[in-house]
C-alpha cells in the first residue's frame, strides 16, 4: 500500500496534465466509494442515495466560494461537515429501515436533493454556479496542483478509514452488519453505531463532492439532479468488493476510467458497464479485490510452493 501511495506522488512528473486531471477524478470517486463502503460494505446498510451527499458537499463549497470567497481547504471541510450533519439527520430518520426499504428510501433522498437543486433559486438549477479559481492561501492551483491536493486528501482518508475499521468502532460496524441481534446482545448500541456510520460515510462522500466541485470548477443540477452518481458509487463498491478498501480503489477506478475511455461510444460504455457488472456478480460475487487477491495468492503459492504460510492474508 505504501508503495502505491509513493507511486501516486511521483506520477505527475511523468504524465501529461490531462491525465493528471483524469486521475484526480478517479481519486474523487475513490473517496466517495470509500464513504459508501463504510455504510454499505462494513455496516451492511445499503445506500443508493450518496449522490445526494456528494451534491451537498459540492454545493457547500461552491456557494461558500461564490458568496464568501472561501478557498479550497475550508470548502473541503465545510462540505464534509454539512454532508455529515445531513447524514446524521437522515440516519436518525431512517434508523428503523434496513435492506431493500433503506435502499429505496435513500434513492428517494437523492432524488429529493436533485429536485431541490432544480427548484430553489439559490442553487441556480441548470444554469449552475461557477467556482472561483482554485487556490489555497493565495496560491493558485493548476491541474497538477489539484492532483496533489486530491491525492493527499485521498491518502489521508484511506488511512483514516483503515484505522477506523480496525478500531473498536469498525468492529462494532461489522458486528451490526453480521447480526443486529447478536451485536445488540453483546452491548453494542445499534442506534449509536448506525447513525455514526451514516454520519462518517456521508461526510466522506461530501468531501469527495467538494473536491469534485473544485475539479470541474462548476456545479449544476445537470450533474447532480438524477441518480446516476448514487448508482455509480454503489457499483464501485459492489464491483470492487464490499468491506474492502482496496476494493473501493479498484471500483472507483472502474467507474471513472471505463466510461472515459469509451466516451465517444457512450451507449457502448453503458452496455459494457452492465455486462461487466453482471459478470462480476456471476463469477466473482466478492468483487474484484477478492478475485485479484486469490490470483495473487495462487501465483505466490506457485512460486513459494512448499512453504506453509502462504495462506496468510495478503490482501492488503
Amino acid at each position: 500500500m505504501a508503495g502505491f501511495f509513493c507511486l501516486l506522488l511521483v506520477l505527475p512528473l511523468f504524465i501529461q496534465g490531462f491525465y493528471a486531471s483524469l486521475l484526480t477524478m478517479t481519486f474523487i470517486y475513490i473517496i466517495a466509494a470509500i464513504g459508501v463502503n463504510i455504510l454499505t460494505g462494513f455496516t451492511g446498510l445499503v445506500t443508493v442515495g450518496h449522490g445526494g451527499f456528494f451534491a451537498i458537499g459540492a454545493y457547500t463549497t461552491a456557494l461558500m466560494g461564490k458568496y464568501l470567497g472561501v478557498s479550497m481547504l475550508p470548502g473541503l471541510f465545510a462540505g464534509g461537515i454539512t454532508a455529515g450533519v445531513v447524514g446524521f439527520l437522515l440516519g436518525i430518520i431512517f434508523l428503523r429501515l434496513s435492506g431493500a426499504f433503506l435502499a429505496i428510501g435513500t434513492l428517494g433522498f437523492a432524488f429529493a436533493i436533485g429536485s431541490i437543486l432544480n427548484n430553489w433559486s439559490i442553487f441556480e438549477g441548470r444554469e449552475g454556479i461557477s467556482l472561483p479559481h482554485n487556490s489555497i492561501a493565495g496560491l493558485k492551483f493548476g491541474d497538477v496542483g489539484l492532483y496533489y491536493f486530491c491525492a493527499i486528501t485521498m491518502i489521508f482518508l484511506i488511512l483514516f478509514a483503515n484505522s477506523l475499521i480496525k478500531s473498536s468502532v469498525g468492529r462494532a460496524f461489522t458486528a451490526v452488519r453480521d447480526s443486529e441481534r447478536a451485536a445488540e446482545s453483546s452491548g453494542i448500541n445499534l442506534r449509536f453505531y448506525k447513525t455514526l456510520s451514516f454520519t462518517i460515510s456521508a461526510a466522506l462522500t461530501g468531501m469527495a463532492g467538494a473536491l469534485f466541485a473544485h475539479h470541474t470548477n462548476y456545479v449544476s443540477s445537470e450533474t447532480f439532479g438524477d441518480s446516476w452518481l448514487s448508482v455509480d458509487f454503489l457499483v464501485a463498491v459492489v464491483v470492487g468488493g464490499q468491506a474492502s478498501l482496496a476494493g473501493s480503489i479498484l471500483g472507483g477506478a472502474f467507474v471513472v476510467l471505463l466510461p472515459y475511455y469509451l466516451s465517444e461510444y457512450r451507449d457502448f460504455a453503458f452496455i459494457l458497464k452492465g455486462v461487466v457488472l453482471i459478470l462480476v456478480l456471476l463469477f466473482a460475487p466478492a468483487g474484484l479485490s477478492d478475485l485479484l487477491g486469490r490470483l495473487y495468492r495462487k501465483i505466490l503459492g506457485k512460486i513459494v510452493r512448499g512453504q506453509s504460510d502462504v495462506s496468510c492474508n495478503l490482501r492488503d
Binding site: 435492506g99 457499483v235 458497464k273 453482471i278
Partner: peptide, 28 residues
Amino acid sequence: RKIRNADWLTLFTATLGVYYILHGVSGW
C-alpha cells in the same frame, strides 16, 4: 436464475446491470 440464492444486494445490482444494458442498447 443463476444468482437466485444470492443476497438481495447482489440481485438488486444485477438488475442494475440489466438496466445499464437496456439503456445502452436502446440508445445505440
